[in-house]
Design a protein around this nucleic acid. Sequence first.
DNA 1: AAGGAAAACAACCGCCTCTGG
DNA 2: GCCAGAGGCGGTTGTTTTCCT
Length: 265
Amino acid sequence: MGRAPCCDKTKVKRGPWSPEEDAALKHYMHNNGTGGNWIALPHKAGLNRCGKSCRLRWLNYLRPDIKHGGFTEEEDNVIWTLYSNIGSRWSVIASQLPGRTDNDVKNYWNTKLKKKLLARSTNSNETTDNSTTTDHLNLTRFSSPLINPKAENSDQGNSAYCDHSTNSDTLPYLMNVNCVQSFDLKHPTSQLSYSSNPVEVSDFGTNGNTGSSISSTSSSSTLAMENCTSFASWAGTGNVNIEDGILLDLGFDSSNDTFLSGFGF
DNA sequence: AAGGAAAACAACCGCCTCTGG
DNA sequence: GCCAGAGGCGGTTGTTTTCCT
């Protein structure tokens, strides 16, 4: 059983794209767009390729607004921060990095950032005094603005409270936390000044059973986490949206191990 | 200079979601 | 409401390039 393949793989070309194929696809897209149908596109464009392959090639490589080249430190920070919050939702993360594709971000994470993190983890384990390890390649730098230790003294009924002590072997965003995180991706108060396109994530599931809806056009954004009374929100207006306090204790300052174990190390 | 290892990148696979009939 | 097809996504694999010995 199973779903029928989108094309006959024995009859379409596979593997690396030739410059001629790239040119044909570019030319067709320039003149016609997708026409709302990727499956039919290869035939119309005179390409002996699977429609999905064409789509991938266009989105990941040929699109005119694609940014090629190395990632900046700022982009690193955005990726790390979002990964720590939402996990491997590469398309969501990529949407916050203009010109970057989900494939780009995913590859970059798998080949570089993960190793950087691992290296830092090793270094930090060799250091007994965590308070002196301030140069954790932005691990500390990007996380610290989101952490408000004083919040633990806040009214828990208002959800200005974080508790990740009960579930330390999971990703921070999966923890049974009870907190609110508000930060602004546009302004330096949160050091996430890169983004220009807030994302809205509602009904954000953590167990795979729930759906999610994401809008990159909304003016405000909310990240709700299941199994906890928490959500993160940031305003598109340019102001930090402090609703019940600014915090999301990712665990960096108190225990890097907690954080790192969430990444599967 | 050659060969092997590691890193980086591109592409594919299969599942899930969405949408139109 | 159901179903089939198309799009989208994340994980994985394959290929190429770079680095090291």
